[in-house]
């Protein structure tokens, strides 16, 4: 899923202050799972904004709505009746949701309430971990299902650097050394031999380095 965090109210105010009616739109998918932009967070942000404006003796119209998915047209269209009544839309979707709204509602300002962070997993309640960079050529099969591109701070492909200490990364002790995890996993699986081979330079052309990516499938088109 996509993991995000909500921006602070000051930054959000800086974007929405010029409008007198704001539609606050959440997304009940990924960003609900990471407790940043789901239904609950949408209602909370709406309330927080109202209080914040009231403190400045202002009373813009603020309406909350939440979509099941903010990145799919079928869902986005569900708020079509609310859009004309508001000057701007404040999105609690990820970056994809914000841009999808902007494509559908071409004449409305769409403003992000979240900072979109990464593709990751809920490791435990309240902890989300980045574990995929979307490089476009999955190599997990060779590395015990631990991604060196994502989990190593230097994206090393041929083993841990000299800064790995007691399973921690040199960049920050809060980061697990991705290579220690790879080695541990392959040791458990009895497949450490996979690591003795030289891994050639990564083909980054399938990643964002090749430009914004797009998938088109004729069998899926209407």
């Amino acid at each position: 899923m996509v993991v995000a965090e909500r921006k602070n109210i000051e930054e959000i105010r800086g974007m929405v202050d010029r409008y007198s009616s704001i539609l606050v739109v959440g997304c009940d998918s990924c960003v609900a799972e990471c407790a940043a932009g789901g239904h609950r967070e949408t209602m909370l942000l709406g309330a927080a904004l109202k209080i914040s404006f009231q403190q400045d003796s202002r009373n813009p119209r603020i309406t909350e709505a939440c979509l099941d998915r903010q990145c799919v047209d079928d869902f986005i269209e569900q708020i079509a009746h609310l859009v004309p009544e508001h000057e701007a839309i404040l999105s609690l979707g990820c970056g994809a949701g914000v841009q999808a709204l902007a494509r559908v509602y071409g004449d409305k300002p769409i403003l992000p309430a979240l900072d979109t962070l990464f593709i990751g997993e809920t490791e435990m309640r309240g902890v989300w971990q980045e574990n995929c960079l979307g490089c476009g050529k999955c190599k997990l099969g060779y590395f015990g299902a631990v991604c060196p591109v994502t989990r190593c701070s230097k994206r090393l492909m041929n083993g841990p650097c000299g800064g790995s200490k007691e399973g921690r990364c040199e960049v920050n002790p809060g980061i697990s050394c991705g290579w220690q995890m790879i080695i541990n996993r392959l040791e458990t699986l009895g497949e450490l031999d996979r690591l003795s081979e030289y891994v050639p330079p990564v083909d980054w052309s399938t990643s964002h380095s090749g430009g914004p990516r797009r998938v088109e499938r004729e069998d899926q088109k209407p």
Binding site: P160, G167, Q180, I183, Y198
Partner: peptide
Amino acid sequence: ADPAAWRVVRLAKKVQA
């Protein structure tokens, strides 16, 4: 550095490269 057992493997990879 750690993992200790890996250090010489990495050296071998550098020599091989």
